[in-house]
Design a protein around this nucleic acid. Structure first.
Lengths: 252, 252
DNA sequence: CGGGTATTTGACGACTGTCAACGCCAGTGG
DNA sequence: CCACTGGCGTTGACAGTCGTCAAATACCCG
């Protein structure tokens, strides 16, 4: 799958200019110390929509920071059913796992066209060992992803279709809004109903029915890869989404 | 709730003798460097069954390594429904989250009587900053918990009652077995059906029906706080539990 | 022995999945 | 320019899993 990768001629320093600095790995690392990241020969690559970045169970040479676009992190059951763990947005780190260099324990696929900053996985351990700010930062980042995963688990385990979908829409709405800093408007929403279904643990048919219902109630509008939240308050109520608490958690 | 805590007269060094060293925070830290943990004034405490260790949304003074007993990590929806994120077994770390010193984002409760080794949360950051092996170790530990959470999410989102329960039983069976190194026998199983239900996202009634069914088929036996897996292979098949893959992940 | 907690059971209904078909739209090629 | 094709969204009928409600039984501890 990786044969489609295309290496861009951008300079290494691009890696340090991730648009969403505050949630990237290098947040909190002193500017003057960033030079050494070059020694890990970071490279920028581009992946077209729908293409896999990691294949479940397969080895991988690099880990990545997502610079641009959306990706999805998933696992597949032996019977073929897919569960999406989380959607990755710019600034997110992809490819950290307990065995730093072992085969990937989850798959990652590009949703849109995606731009990645690559680190050789073989140097991750050294990187974290020599630069402890990075190790702590990675631990904190990972704790954040854990938070998302736990929310997700709570929703899937204890909420019905309406509630789960409302929750997902709000989560992506806020995370997306943080990227663009444009409030109250339509946010990019590049995922299809099948992806919503695989994320919240429903079938596409039922997701469709639920979205139709929500549109009918004037809660949301979604079309042409964009999402508008019409009645944020009511949607938040449905989702059991306590903005004051969760916003902080999403922001971190 | 914490009023029930009881401080034991054990020496600090107890903290370094967690029975499950290989998965504890100090794994990989050179023995001779462990002295400094004392400076964080680690204390051992004991918590009776059913008592909360962390309350959701409340501040907390300490984080913990679980030395003995089982605990459960949970979140609660505004409507009161509880979702158990994971069961913590000896060696597990409790209380790491993105905002190291902020209010707890999840609750933790003792399942059995529990023995904890406490670290002041206010010194966590310093601890991780000054000892980067610890920061990396924490990141890796956390990645492991993330793995469990993701498996859990996949099960809840994409498997039916039988499959989810089979998976949970096997997970706890293997994790529990690793603690005791006794194979093929009954393992301790101190959780009740309501806790199974809250973990896998079902009702107690349905959990009960499913367990009955499984017992009837000779797959398992569970009573008196103990669990026996009668037909491991068949249970693994039901759970879509690929032992060769998952055992490694559980072991890490 | 008594009271509280956990387990068990049955009847019923709702939510969600399955199957199948149709419509819409964009990209492709003649 | 138009037919063709594949992906995605939409809809309906029906079935099944699972939740709800309610009550009985078993178990544990003081």
């Amino acid at each position: 799958m990786k044969s489609g990768f295309k290496t861009l001629p951008e300079p290494h320093q691009q890696c340090l200019t991730c648009p969403v600095r505050k949630r990237a790995l290098f947040n909190g690392v002193a500017e003057e110390k960033l030079d050494w990241t070059q020694q890990y020969r970071a490279t920028q690559i581009e992946v077209p929509p729908k293409q896999n970045i990691f294949l479940e169970g397969e080895p991988a040479t690099h880990a990545y920071t997502l610079f641009d676009g959306w990706a999805l992190v998933y696992k597949t059951l032996p019977n073929g059913k897919r569960q999406i763990m989380r959607f990755a947005l710019p600034g997110d780190f992809l490819g950290f796992q307990p065995d730093l260099e072992g085969p990937m324990r989850y798959g990652v696929a590009a949703v849109t066209r995606v731009v990645l900053c690559a680190f050789p996985r073989s140097s991750l351990k050294q990187m974290f060992t020599e630069h402890h700010d990075l190790a702590l930062q990675m631990a904190l980042l990972n704790a954040r992803y854990m938070e998302l995963c736990q929310h997700h688990l709570m929703g899937t385990g204890r909420q019905n279709a309406r509630e789960r979908i409302a929750f997902l829409l709000l989560e992506l709405y806020y995370r997306s809004q943080m990227q663009t800093d444009v409030e109250g408007e339509a946010v990019p929403f590049p995922i299809c109903q099948e992806e919503i279904a695989d994320a919240v643990g429903l079938t596409t048919v039922h997701v469709n029915r639920t979205l139709k219902e929500m549109r009918g109630e004037g809660l949301i509008e979604c079309a042409a890869r964009r999402l508008v939240i019409m009645d944020e308050e009511k949607l938040a109520e449905i989702a059991n989404f306590d903005k004051s608490v969760i916003e902080k958690q999403l922001m971190f």
